[in-house]
Design a protein around this nucleic acid. Structure first.
Lengths: 131, 131
DNA sequence: TATACATCCTGTAGTGGCTACAGAAACAAG
DNA sequence: CTTGTTTCTGTAGCCACTACAGGATGTATA
């Protein structure tokens, strides 16, 4: 049992963001103390960690909601769950392959630009003439 | 010499975005025809290509502006440009490694969901305990 | 020339995912 | 009881666009 401030410290997610997640339907509506303040449990720390990492990986809140639904409805049919997971997997693999291209391009750029002047620097060329 | 519509078609950047870039100070204020319409030259196609690719690589507009400023002052050292690229590279590599973990977990989950129950899936754990 | 329609202009508002603040209420410490 | 912290709701701002509205101007066809 903890306050929104304690949850915020534990999870590293801003208080305002926690309230925003509730408003956006990503977190369930928090239980309230008699004085009206939100009360959280340990499971919310886990949920927030999950949301944070998923967001860092580029998942939109809609997708995060879908993934959380998997966790919170273990009675969901295997077929539906598998389809949802497959869709996420496809999204992840697409992101992965594009990121790999970007990484290689950035590596090339950094290599091509070692202690020269901008005149000799290939970063700008690389960005202008990429395709 | 071309209109904003022609530039848009050539560059693949929406008209509204081109005007937004001007407003945001990323593109220089366009020369105007006597009737008040914006007039562009071939160099603007290059600038837009540059901006587009930089954005695709995850550079923020602030960074794009910095890179464009470097381009206009070629007597400066390349250090700043390569630092920007290195920062991008680090961010991309961090995302890559975490995405790889997630992909493996999703693959595992899809496999597990074939014959088991959602409750056995560990994707949530993978995302929750990721660091 | 008249009409139709495309293109452009400025300005404003909406989007997602936060983040920041204002003003009020409640709580905790001295 | 005062002071300071925490929380509440509600609203506004941020970035990087995107989507209009409403008006001016341009071009093609009858």
């Amino acid at each position: 049992m903890m306050s929104i401030g304690a949850l915020s410290k534990q999870s590293g997610v801003h208080i305002e963001t926690i309230r925003y997640y509730e408003r956006a339907g990503v977190l369930p509506k928090a239980r309230r103390a008699p004085n009206g303040r939100r009360v959280y449990g340990q499971e919310d720390t886990g949920r927030l960690a999950f949301i944070r990492h998923a967001r860092e990986l580029g998942f939109e809140l809609v997708a995060v909601r879908a993934l959380l639904a998997l966790q919170e409805k273990p009675e969901l049919s295997c077929k539906a769950a598998s389809e949802l997971a497959s869709a996420q997997l496809a999204a992840v693999e697409s992101r992965l392959s594009r990121l790999t291209v970007l990484r290689d391009e950035l590596k090339r750029m950094v290599r091509a630009c070692k202690n020269g002047r901008v005149v000799d620097c290939r970063v700008i060329d690389a960005l202008t003439n990429m395709r």
